[in-house]
């Protein structure tokens, strides 16, 4: 049970990073479909830096920075040149897939030491189920701390209110003197940093290696989580955990001898997450999509 819980938390972490970042970007009114591409570039850059410096922390930082750079490219197109956001985002994903493969070509088949747990092992052994609480590396705690911070920022902080205004009604915000484009730029760059961290988590801690396309669609799952969670931080985090739980359940259940076709298990995480979030979160947050999501804004004066 402890192992199952730990596996669930670990599997939720890359989804959580990516979903939280995308959520902030979308709340500011920008739909960035490039999450998968940003994650891949984040993963490969984190791996290269961690391998050459021997520091997981520097690797994670490089992953975030690479995500920011990718997001900056997207911002240049979508905000600077007012390009269609969906098209620019898709282009970013395709570009990221190719670029990461190119950067990582000579790093295939090279292992990296595993990221170490943040807390000393004695803490985990001191209490029952301690490993499920204290057994993770620093990035797991960072993901959950960012979830709390982002919730607070969007719900309570004044600057969070401004960000939401940019996403709900850019024209009114602009009329009130808000720097809408600058807010959106910062939100997009933040989203890139989080996606980069999500990718970095995969290549540094989850499976410390670089493999082409190793995100295997997690960026798309994160995007879907944001929508099904009704753009709410808490529901997005819950969705990430639920998705991870059912994904892990398929492996444990097969060992427990639960009889079901393996194809059913492959579909189960998607089904469970969609059902849970659509029924629970959807009803209470219906129509809460940022009103200006995906719409191009050009300051008129």
């Amino acid at each position: 049970m402890e192992a199952f819980f730990a596996a669930m938390i670990v599997a939720a972490t890359p989804l959580l990073f990516a979903a939280l970042g995308e959520l902030v970007a979308e709340r500011s009114g920008v739909l960035n479909l490039g999450v998968e591409g940003m994650m891949l570039v984040g993963a490969v850059c984190a791996f290269i830096v961690a391998l050459s410096t021997g520091s997981t922390a520097l690797g994670a930082f490089a992953g975030a920075a690479a995500g920011v750079a990718m997001a900056g490219l997207f911002a240049l197109l979508a905000l600077g040149f007012s390009a269609n956001q969906a098209a620019a985002g898709l282009a970013l994903t395709i570009f990221g897939g190719g670029l990461s493969g190119l950067l990582g070509a000579s790093y295939v088949g090279v292992p990296l030491p595993k990221a170490q747990p943040l807390f000393p092992a004695s803490w985990a052994e001191a209490i029952p189920y301690g490993k499920a609480i204290f057994g993770y590396d620093a990035m797991v705690y960072l993901a959950w701390a960012s979830a709390a911070a982002i919730w607070w920022f969007l719900a309570r902080a004044r600057s969070g209110l401004k960000l939401r205004a940019a996403g709900d009604n850019a024209e009114s915000g602009h009329a009130l003197g808000l720097p809408v484009l600058r807010i959106r730029l910062l939100a997009v760059l933040f989203g890139g940093a989080m996606a980069g961290l999500g990718g970095a988590y995969l290549s540094l801690a989850y499976t410390p290696m670089w493999g082409e396309g190793m995100t295997a669609g997690r960026g798309w799952i994160a995007l879907a989580l944001v929508v099904f969670a009704g753009w709410r931080v808490g529901w997005a985090a819950a969705g990430a955990v639920l998705f991870a739980a059912v994904t892990q359940l398929q492996f444990y259940a097969q060992g427990w001898g639960w009889r079901a076709p393996s194809q059913f298990w492959a579909a189960a995480p998607y089904l469970a997450t969609i059902l849970a979030l659509a029924l629970l979160a959807g009803r209470r947050t219906a129509g809460s999509a940022p009103a200006a999501l995906g719409r191009i804004f050009r300051p008129s004066s």
């Binding site: 192992a3 596996a7 890359p14 989850y206 190793m214 994904t247 492996f251 097969q254």
Partner: peptide
């Protein structure tokens, strides 16, 4: 244990950790 994928390092590792557990 079926991973239902030929290539997804994360899931492959998850499946391995599950059978180890």
């Amino acid at each position: 244990v079926w991973a239902n994928t030929w290539y997804d390092p994360g899931k492959e590792a998850d499946a391995a950790r599950a059978v180890i557990a």
